[in-house]
Write a protein that binds this DNA or RNA. Structure first.
Lengths: 271, 271
DNA sequence: TTTTTTCTCGTACGGCGTACCATGTCGTAC
DNA sequence: GTACGACATGGTACGCCGTACGAGAAAAAA
């Protein structure tokens, strides 16, 4: 028995039981089939759930998470805001669809069979996907992860470490640790970028030099207190812990730590 | 020369240059001092920045990040929404103050000198702080981390690994990796808890059994497709990767991985 | 044709951040 | 004592948000 993706989504109906129009429609269709032995044909007025989801992702990619508003998406579609609610029962549900759609577009490199190579590749892929859709970070992990594409990816991840012969709990711990690190790393990067963006906007009339001078003066004050020797040294060595140039290196450093640690905790290891 | 905390905040003025009333007031006070040789006395009407920040934290702790609104905080203070703007130039600035205030209340265990013990303790402390103030997760890392308490904590962290004799870049990488993992872990926990909460609310009239049955039926459908063997097995072994009971164990598993990895990458190690 | 179902969308409500400005309060100068 | 000006409060208004409600258009079914 094969199910189409629409049916795989049905788990979400538990949040909308009896109150949402899509379910009424679904029930109606079932009734129709029982009554007449054929499915009521779907018509296309112009909007469709897929189109809405795709547009929402496009807008979110271009303008960030705060641009994901029903009005904004509707405007993009030349539709009324309330029109979306026929195809999607709430903004939350729209987010569910958006998240799963993005999971669907992830392209994983082929499995090599070496767990470390495969997990490294998966981590970089995850990071890239998260960075392509900055808004993802605001919602990932926050909704039931049971869409068809999400499930498919979970399957693939578990298959990657099948060969290690771990029990299910440990396998999930390993994948979870990796995913946790990637989430944290990308979250940190985004927050840094947000700071940079805000600073750039707030700079307004100020030149680069003005800003530099303000910061410099402040650091001199801090140095004067003698209470922040490490910070002062950091500044004087010209190190910016949030520097954009070192982000890849930082990510790799941490990733290697995590993988080393996983390797050390695999069965059959010393310690 | 010793500076009070108020002055240590002044770096933030770069975002408000010339346009915010607090700065006007400050300039005025300086002018007064120059003109008359004495400081214009401060009066206490009833509101104060500290009180606003404390109340905001209280409200946020009790009701979550979305409750941090100027109106809500003002209501709590029996004040008008706009009154807050005398003490704080924008909601963003209020957040800056809130974040640093929270950094100030963190209580670190005494330093033992063993880097691994100290970093483990710091990670658990961080996690506890993040969990006590759930709203923190929405803002941490997203604002210039230059408040006095934030700086103090950075100093303390760097001092913890002083004995390892790492160069500054590596030291920051080590601390950053740990912080990244903790952020990711707590973020994941919160997102899970959010799902649980929403499910509980959405459950409404449904009993535990109803819900269980709905999920069970759905999993049976998925099993029927044969496309999700690992997921099916997970379900049948009764494993919930998001289970609340295993959160501490999960955190510890990952933390050990990270620390093992750091240990392996310290100078003077094999490999 | 008429009826039913499917789909679109205008209006309205209560929330948000905050710009602008009128108002009140009080220390101080005269 | 009175008047002034700095400090502090908060009402009103604007344009955002999600979405409940229900009117109405349009297509399909009868």
């Amino acid at each position: 028995m094969e199910l189409d993706d629409e049916e795989l989504w049905s788990i979400f109906d538990r949040r909308n039981l009896g109150r949402d129009r899509r379910e009424q429609r679904a029930n109606q269709r079932i009734k129709d089939m029982q009554d007449h032995g054929h499915q009521a044909p779907r018509r296309v007025r112009s909007l469709s759930r897929d189109e809405i989801v795709k547009t929402a992702i496009k807008v979110a990619d271009a303008e960030g998470a705060q641009a994901i508003s029903m009005r904004r998406i509707a405007r993009e579609l030349n539709a009324g805001a309330m029109s979306l609610y026929w195809h999607v029962s709430s903004k939350d549900e729209l987010l569910d669809f958006m998240l799963d759609a993005v999971e669907g577009e992830e392209e994983f490199p082929p499995v090599t069979g070496d767990w470390r190579t495969d997990l490294t590749a998966a981590a970089w892929t995850q990071r890239t996907a998260l960075r392509r859709h900055e808004w993802l970070m605001d919602f990932i992990g926050g909704r039931p992860p049971l869409g068809p594409n999400t499930l498919r990816n979970l399957e693939r991840s578990l298959a990657t470490i099948d060969s290690l012969g771990l029990d299910m709990v440990t396998a999930l711990n390993v994948l979870g640790t990796l995913a946790t690190y990637v989430m944290g790393a990308v979250l940190r990067e985004f927050r840094e970028m947000g700071v940079e963006r805000r600073d750039r906007e707030a700079a307004g009339g100020l030149t680069e030099d003005d800003l530099h001078k303000i910061v410099h003066d402040h650091v001199q004050k801090l140095r004067g207190t003698g209470r922040f020797p490490h910070f002062t040294r950091m500044y004087e060595e010209g190190i910016d812990p949030d520097s954009a140039e070192t982000r890849d290196a930082r990510f790799e450093f941490g990733l290697r730590c995590v993988l080393d640690g996983i390797a050390a905790r695999l069965p059959g290891q010393p310690g």
